[in-house]
Simulated scan of single mutants.
Amino acid sequence: MSKNIVILSGAGISAESGIKTFRDAGGLWEDHPVEQVATPEGFAADPVLVQRFYNLRRAALKTVTPNAAHIALARLQSEIRARGGDVMIVTQNVDDLHERGGAKYVLHMHGELKRVFCTACDFHADWDGDVSVDTPCLACRTVGTVRPDIVWFGEIPHHMDAIDRALSQCDLFVSIGTSGAVYPAAGFVRVAKHYGAQTLELNLEPSEGNLYFDETRLGKAGNTVPAWVENILAG
């Protein structure tokens, strides 16, 4: 049985809980062009619109719940760690469904809806309510510098050093619900293979990087992930 597992999760796992993805809407995210609401330039051009957009996304989290895939991964992480191994969940998703499903160790490489940071002093904080252009930073009290702690297009993903370290040490890399089109996440499978890990893809359809995986299992994450977890834990 694999003792050190790195799991990459993408939009496909959260879509089954009812969270829309901009790739499903022709480049729109909740009817907005991503350039408008997911770039530093968009924020600079219309901060009121961008804050309102993320306020709505943050509030929408309260209307969705973790699905069977989130819950199964949390169980896998707990049981493998109890046996002396490790399961690192790296997610491209900005929701909190992994944590609400029970996972304790999750790296959000693209940030989190329920966090903000200050562009003036770089103070990061958990945040559950609305943010406006008049919200002062909790640390430096500057007004107009608090923004969603989301990695927008053109920005560097979070936790890359920790992710690279985990990829170099894992013996199994699993990609769940990702398109294989967004870098650097799309390259993780090749990094893991370089260090000798086995690779598995669980997806609705083969990703763009499918040829790099040793095995592919197709189907909804809510079905394929719990079945795979059962197999791992029984092995």
Rank of each mutant, 00 (worst) to 15 (best):
A60H: 14
R52I: 02
K62A: 15
N67L: 12
L28R: 10
P66S: 06
P33A: 11
W29T: 01
A59K: 13
R52E: 12
G42E: 10
W29H: 07
D46Q: 08
V48T: 06
R52T: 07
A59V: 13
L49E: 06
R52A: 11
V50D: 01
P47F: 03
A44C: 07
R52L: 07
H32I: 05
V64M: 09
D46L: 11
D46A: 07
H32D: 04
P33H: 13
V50W: 01
N67W: 10
V50G: 01
G42D: 10
L28P: 13
P66T: 05
T39I: 02
E35H: 01
V37T: 04
W29V: 04
L56F: 12
V34R: 07
H32N: 07
G42Y: 07
N55W: 03
R52Q: 12
L49F: 05
D31H: 02
V48L: 02
E30P: 01
R58G: 12
V34L: 09
V34I: 15
A45F: 03
P66N: 04
N55C: 09
A38M: 08
E30R: 14
Q36C: 02
F43K: 10
A59D: 13
A44L: 12
V34D: 07
H32Q: 10
F43D: 10
E41Y: 00
A60T: 12
V37P: 04
R57N: 11
R57S: 08
T63S: 15
N55E: 07
L28A: 12
T63G: 10
V64A: 09
A60F: 14
P40H: 02
Q36N: 04
P33D: 15
D31Y: 00
Q36A: 06
L56T: 15
T63D: 15
V64E: 08
D46H: 07
